[in-house]
Design a protein around this nucleic acid. Structure first.
Lengths: 162, 162
DNA sequence: TACATTAACATGAAATTTCATATAATTTGA
DNA sequence: TCAAATTATATGAAATTTCATGTTAATGTA
């Protein structure tokens, strides 16, 4: 278990100097936030070029997976707060991307559906997202690329129940 | 190289069903955002209990590493937009956590320093952050825990230059 | 030198986000 | 069955965030 700092591997990265101070560059939550921010930022530029903002894209993507989700479900999935999601849905509905429908069995629940147009957007962007993801993964070695999602999923799953 | 889905390892996670749809649960940027959100969310609760909001904590943490950073530098480090950071610094300065000082050699630059009080906060929270990080990493196997930071750093480094 | 260009930061108005709470429907359980 | 208690979503005001642009200082260059 080599522990002499990052990478004796191959396509050597700049020595990861730990620049000035050394906290954030070695802090897991910072690395996660930084990678997420920059990586998502790249794709969000594309998303905005299609007239959507990041949270709207997230909602579309989640609905692509689970059309007819109730607001609370959708908020959790799309990493948005409920009251914020409600307002985002307002706007998306006004633009014809989604529609609301009361749940027939529990009238408190509001289910959110993609419209025809919304689904078209979602399908297109999901394809673009997959392509972008492939480009990102191509920056990693096979080993790294193979490890990253399972590790993230493991962490996510084990955080839920703790 | 076993490749029959996540983990033949040990503390088996729920089979990662890919629930209903199957896009987001397998999408790297989603996993990153989700893990980052939930993990940081945990710590941010602690941060708020100390009277700071998440972006303020990020600024403190970055300054702990690089006291006297100029605004633009600090914005990049702390993953905040410049104009937003400027306003956050206003507030933090008003509360006595940081102070501004013009750069002697280039008067356009504004350098941001921790005050005595700011540093105290930073030091305390950084320690707490390390402890929290340890608890998160304890959710992973040794192999997973050993892999996660290097992979994130690799991705980050290679994204910068692309 | 002086002019144009670029860089660093600040600012203001518009938009979004947050937080607490309102409203309405369902469930609990006495 | 009725009155709490709880769940689901919406709403409004205050705060933050964004976006475009203003201001000031430095740099390149003719």
């Amino acid at each position: 278990m080599p522990q002499d700092g990052p990478s004796l591997e191959e396509g050597t990265d700049p020595p990861h100097d730990a620049k000035a101070g050394s906290f954030v560059d070695d802090y897991l939550l910072y690395l996660l936030a930084a990678v997420s921010d920059r990586a998502s930022g790249q794709f969000h530029a594309h998303v905005r070029a299609h007239g959507l903002r990041a949270p709207e894209w997230r909602v579309l993507a989640c609905l692509a997976d689970e059309d007819g989700a109730m607001v609370t479900e959708l908020a959790r999935l799309s990493l948005l707060e409920q009251s914020r999601l409600t307002k985002i849905i307002d706007q998306m509905a006004a633009r014809g991307l989604v529609s609301r429908r009361a749940d027939p069995v529990d009238a408190r629940r509001v289910r959110v559906f993609l419209t025809h147009q919304g689904r078209a957007q979602a399908v297109g962007l999901v394809a673009d997202a997959r392509a972008h993801e492939a480009r990102l993964l191509a920056l990693l070695t096979e080993e790294e690329a193979g490890a990253i999602k399972p590790v993230l999923r493991a962490l996510l799953a084990r955080m839920e129940r703790s």
